[in-house]
Deep mutational scan, measured.
Amino acid sequence: RELEKFANEFKVRRIKLGYTQTNVGEALAAVHGSEFSQTTICRFENLQLSFKNACKLKAILSKWLEEAE
């Protein structure tokens, strides 16, 4: 439930900031050390990743959002 809420909020905030899914994937290299594909970001936003992978990505995306805003 919390993950679903974060995924929805993330998408809204990403769009408000003017980032595409591809931009986010590339920008994550600075935060995490490796890029993520547009497909991975899309699957996260649509809750199509495994729970374990989504939880890992949530932590990375939270950190990125803090820096982007």
Rank of each mutant, 00 (worst) to 15 (best):
Arg13Leu: 01
Ser50His: 11
Asn23Phe: 15
Asn8Ile: 14
Leu28Ser: 04
Ile15Cys: 09
Phe44Gln: 01
Gln38Thr: 15
Cys42Ile: 06
Thr20Met: 01
Trp64Gly: 06
Val31Ser: 13
Trp64Lys: 07
Leu57Lys: 07
Arg13Thr: 01
Tyr19Asp: 04
Glu35Gly: 12
Thr40Ser: 08
Leu3Ile: 10
Lys52Phe: 08
Arg43Asn: 12
Ser50Val: 01
Phe44Thr: 00
Ala59Ile: 14
Cys55Phe: 13
Leu49Val: 09
Ala30Val: 07
Cys55Asn: 10
Asn46Asp: 12
Gln48Trp: 01
Leu65Pro: 03
Ala27Glu: 15
Gly25Leu: 04
Leu17Val: 03
Arg43Ala: 15
Thr20Gly: 05
Ala7Arg: 04
Glu66Cys: 12
Arg43Leu: 11
Ser34Asn: 14
Arg43Thr: 02
Glu35Ile: 09
Ser50Glu: 14
Ile60Trp: 05
Lys63Asp: 14
Asn8Val: 10
Leu61Ser: 02
Glu69Gln: 05
Glu2Ala: 08
Gln21Thr: 13
Glu9Arg: 05
Gly25Tyr: 14
Glu66Pro: 05
Val31Ala: 13
Glu2Arg: 05
Arg1Met: 04
Leu47Val: 01
Phe6Pro: 02
Phe51Ala: 11
Glu69Gly: 06
Trp64Asp: 05
Ser62Gln: 14
Ser62Tyr: 05
Leu57His: 10
Thr22Ser: 14
Cys42Trp: 12
Ser37Thr: 13
Gly33Ala: 06
Glu45Gly: 00
Thr40Gly: 06
Leu61Asn: 02
Lys16Leu: 07
Val24Met: 02
Lys58Gln: 13
Thr40Phe: 01
Lys5Ala: 13
Gly33Gln: 10
Gly33Asp: 04
Arg1Thr: 08
Cys55Ser: 14
Leu3Tyr: 10
Lys5Asn: 12
Asn8Pro: 03
Arg13Gln: 10
Glu69Ala: 07
Glu45His: 00
Ser62Pro: 01
Cys55Lys: 11
Asn53Trp: 10
Lys5Cys: 05
Lys63Met: 11
Arg14Tyr: 03
Arg13His: 03
Ile15Arg: 12
Phe6Asp: 00
Phe36Val: 14
Phe6Trp: 09
Gln38Phe: 08
Asn53Ala: 14
Ala27Phe: 07
Glu26Ala: 09
Asn53Lys: 15
Lys16Gly: 06
Val12Lys: 12
Val24Arg: 01
Glu67Pro: 04
Lys11Arg: 13
Gln48Ile: 03
Ala30Phe: 04
Asn46Trp: 02
Ser37Gln: 03
Gln48Thr: 11
Ser62Glu: 14
Gln21Leu: 11
Val31Trp: 08
Ile60Glu: 06
Phe10Glu: 03
Gly18Pro: 05
Trp64Gln: 05
Leu47Ser: 11
Lys58Trp: 09
Leu49Ile: 10
Leu47Trp: 03
Arg13Asn: 05
Glu9Phe: 10
Asn53Phe: 15
Glu4Gln: 10
Glu2Gln: 06
Thr39Pro: 08
Phe44Ala: 00
Val12Leu: 11
Ile41Trp: 07
Asn23Gly: 14
Lys16Gln: 11
Asn23Lys: 12
Ala7Gly: 01
Leu49Met: 14
Leu61Val: 04
Lys63Phe: 02
Glu35Asp: 11
Cys42Gly: 13
Lys5Gln: 11
Lys56Asn: 12
Ala59Val: 14
Glu35Trp: 10
Leu47Glu: 05
Phe51Thr: 12
Asn46Met: 07
Phe44His: 06
Arg43Gln: 14
Leu57Pro: 01
Phe44Ser: 00
Lys5His: 12
Lys63Glu: 14
Ala59Met: 12
Ala68Tyr: 05
Ser37Met: 02
Glu69Val: 01
Leu61Phe: 06
Glu45Lys: 03
Gly18Cys: 04
Asn46Ser: 12
Ala27Lys: 07
Lys58Ser: 05
Ser37Glu: 06
Gln48Lys: 07
Lys16Tyr: 05
Glu2Thr: 09
Thr20Val: 03
Gly18Arg: 02
Thr40Leu: 13
Asn8Thr: 13
Leu65Cys: 02
Cys42His: 13
Val31Cys: 10
Leu17Phe: 05
Asn8Glu: 11
Phe10Asn: 05
Phe51Leu: 11
Asn53Gln: 13
Val31Leu: 13
Cys42Arg: 15
Glu35Val: 09
Gly18Ser: 02
Lys56Asp: 08
Gly33Arg: 02
Ala30Tyr: 05
Leu61Arg: 00
Gln21Pro: 09
Ala27Thr: 11
Ser34Trp: 06
Ala68Ile: 15
Ser34Gly: 13
Lys11Pro: 01
Trp64His: 06
Val24Thr: 05
Leu61Thr: 03
Glu9Trp: 13
Asn46Ala: 11
Lys52Leu: 08
Trp64Phe: 08
Asn46Glu: 08
Phe51Glu: 15
Lys16Ile: 05
Leu57Trp: 05
Gly33Val: 03
Ala7Met: 06
Phe44Cys: 01
Ala68Trp: 00
Glu26Asn: 12
Lys16His: 03
Trp64Arg: 03
Ala68Leu: 03
Glu2Trp: 06
Phe6Gly: 04
Arg13Trp: 04
Phe10Ala: 02
Leu61Asp: 03
Ser50Gly: 14
Gly25Thr: 09
Glu67Tyr: 08
Arg43Tyr: 02
Lys58Asp: 05
Leu28Val: 10
Ala30His: 08
Glu2Leu: 04
Lys56Val: 11
Val31Lys: 15
Val12Ile: 13
Lys11Thr: 07
Ile41Ser: 02
Ile15Phe: 07
Ile15Pro: 00
Ala7Trp: 05
Asn23Cys: 11
Ala68His: 10
Gly33Asn: 06
Glu67Val: 08
Gln48His: 05
Leu61Cys: 08
Ala29Arg: 12
Lys11Phe: 00
